[in-house]
Design a protein around this nucleic acid. Structure first.
Lengths: 163, 163
DNA sequence: CTAGCTCGGTTCGGAATTCGAACCAAGCAT
DNA sequence: ATGCTTGGTTCGAATTCCGAACCGAGCTAG
């Protein structure tokens, strides 16, 4: 996106979308920064104060997130040129990850019930996320999942090796 | 280490389930280890080879994941006492997080389509995860979410502050 | 019986990251 | 002119990560 100069680990960073995603958001601070972005925080200092993160680390993470394309830097004032960081479409689509993290924490780590509840605005009731089958139209437990290679698996396996 | 002596940041580690979850899985290796666990890898050396992770780091992460309760150590052989690591119920429920990471990577980071596809076994079709409203019964975009304090928010806010 | 192999680690020293504190710069307010 | 705010950068110290070596219990081949 930004201009990533074609990293060392070439074409397919990893044959796994989870690993690829983690290259971008697989870091405690990055996720927390994105959480703040979803909560509407956009300015360097807002985020810094909220997370109590060292400035150097915040600057570094923001730069990387912008480079990756999940945040965009917008000039919101000219004279002392100031920028704020906003979620891009790519960034907004990270929400299922955050919601999943939140739900899991709610369920297993919150003695007194969830500290925050997400609400589906149009109807005002609570959001829940579940594994969903588009064919059945039903939700199901994690145990009902299998996997198979998808289209992107081609060209990853050197045809010799087959374990 | 052994028994964590009641950390400095006392009662509610953070007023945010995301932050709490990240205390456990907010680390690149931990997530990758859990992914392997979902894929059926259970032994130290299997995982080590698959991830190409330094042994010391793997030992450390496994210990922490067991401590946290997402993995359990099972003796699978007695004489040279050997153990394997299995997902607990708590661990299995992390799957939405992994699925969300995977879907996001599929969508934004996979030029040639998803390297792996998850399948809903009973019906054989592809799994998709979406934000879902239990009342409407419909899926919706991230922009349709608001939040409000939940039950666990009590005792967290000093009653003075209200921004 | 002894050399080598496997599995599941631990230990060690050096390299890379992170941290907190200090500093910088541009502009505004007093 | 002094200080405050925003958005950083720089620096040395502390932490964490890495890779390689080693360990120990048991098995196996010769």
């Amino acid at each position: 996106m930004g201009a990533r100069p074609l990293q060392d680990d070439d074409a397919p960073a990893a044959a796994c979308s989870i690993a690829r995603s983690l290259d971008i958001v697989g870091d405690r601070w990055s996720i927390l920064i994105l959480r703040d972005a979803f909560r509407g925080l956009r300015r360097f200092d807002q985020i810094r104060r909220d997370l109590d993160i060292p400035k150097a680390v915040l600057a570094d993470r923001l730069r990387k997130l912008v480079e990756a394309g999940v945040l965009a830097r917008h000039r919101y004032q000219d004279h002392p040129p100031r920028h704020e960081y906003r979620l891009t479409a790519m960034g907004r689509e990270l929400s299922p990850i955050l919601v999943a993290l939140m739900q899991w924490g709610d369920r297993w780590l919150s003695e007194n019930g969830p500290p925050t509840v997400l609400v589906h605005e149009p109807c005002g009731t609570e959001v829940r996320m579940a594994l969903h089958c588009t064919t059945c139209g039903e939700d199901f437990p994690p145990t009902a999942i299998t996997s198979r290679p998808g289209p992107g698996a081609a060209a990853l396996r050197p045809p010799t090796e087959s374990t």
